[in-house]
C-alpha cells in the first residue's frame, strides 16, 4: 500500500459519502444519473466476487463490502426512496451501447479465460466508462450543483491517483497490469474536461453551467 493508492481509495470513499450525504440531506437525487449508479453497482458486484474466493486484508474486504453495499443503497435511493426527485427525462444515455461492447471486449481481451477473470475484466472496462451517463446528464441540463461537482471531482481523482500508484508499483514492486492501466487512462481522460471546469469555476465559487 503506497500513498497514492491510499489517498486514491480515500478519495473514492469520500466521493461515495458525498453522494449519499447530498441525497440524504437534500432529500433529493436531482442531477444524479441513476444509470451511472446502476453501472457502478454492476462494476462492484462483478469485480468483488473474489470476496468468496480470496482474502487480501481486513482493509481490502471491508472496503469491498462498503463499496458494494453503498452502491445498492444509492440505486435504491434513486429508483425508490427519492424517486419523485429523480430527473429521468435528462438521464437518457443508452447504457446498452456501453455494456454490450465492454462485455465483448472483456470476453476477447483478458488475462485468463475463466468466469471470474472475465467478470473482473468486464468490471474494469465498465468502470472506465460508467460515468458517461452522468457527464451526459450534466452536459444535457447544462449545469451541475456544487455538491455534484465535488462528488465528480473526488470520483475522478481516485483513478488518476491510481495511475500514480501503478507507476510507483511498476518501479518499486515490478507490478504491471496492462488491462487496469489502459482502462485507468481512459477513465481519467474522460474526466479531463470536467476537471478543467471544476478548477476554473467551482473552486472560484461558481457552479458549473455550460452555454446552451
Amino acid at each position: 500500500m503506497n500513498i497514492f493508492r491510499l489517498v486514491g481509495d480515500m478519495s473514492h470513499l469520500l466521493a461515495i459519502i458525498i453522494l449519499l450525504m447530498k441525497m440524504w440531506k437534500s432529500r433529493s437525487v436531482a442531477g444524479i444519473s441513476g444509470k451511472s449508479q446502476i453501472l457502478f453497482a454492476i462494476v462492484f458486484t462483478t469485480r468483488y466476487l473474489d470476496l468468496f474466493t480470496s482474502f487480501v486484508s481486513i482493509y481490502n474486504t471491508s472496503m469491498k463490502v462498503f463499496f458494494i453495499g453503498t452502491s445498492y443503497v444509492t440505486v435504491y435511493f434513486i429508483y425508490q426512496h427519492f424517486k419523485p426527485t429523480y430527473d429521468s427525462n435528462h438521464d437518457t444515455f443508452r447504457v446498452e451501447f456501453l455494456i454490450v461492447p465492454v462485455g465483448g471486449l472483456a470476453f476477447l481481451v483478458n488475462h485468463e479465460f475463466s468466469l471470474l477473470e472475465i467478470l473482473w475484466t468486464f468490471s474494469i472496462y465498465l468502470e472506465s466508462v460508467a460515468i458517461l451517463p452522468q457527464l451526459f446528464m450534466v452536459s444535457k441540463t447544462g449545469e451541475a450543483e456544487s455538491i455534484t461537482s465535488h462528488y465528480l471531482f473526488a470520483l475522478g481523482s481516485y483513478r488518476a491517483l491510481y495511475l500514480l500508484n501503478w507507476i510507483y508499483r511498476y518501479y518499486f514492486e515490478g507490478f504491471f497490469d496492462l488491462i487496469a492501466v489502459v482502462a485507468g487512462c481512459v477513465q481519467t481522460i474522460l474526466y479531463c474536461d470536467f476537471f478543467y471546469l471544476y478548477i476554473t469555476k467551482v473552486l472560484k465559487g461558481k457552479k458549473i453551467s455550460l452555454p446552451a
Binding site: 493508492r5 481509495d9 473514492h12 473474489d50 480470496s54 487480501v56 481490502n60 472496503m63 469491498k64 463499496f67 488475462h111 473482473w120 491510481y162 500508484n165 511498476y170 514492486e173 515490478g174 507490478f175 504491471f176 497490469d177 496492462l178 487496469a180
Partner: peptide, 10 residues
Amino acid sequence: SVVCVSHDEL
C-alpha cells in the same frame, strides 16, 4: 521480473 496480475487492489 514483472508481476503481471494479482487483484489486490480495489
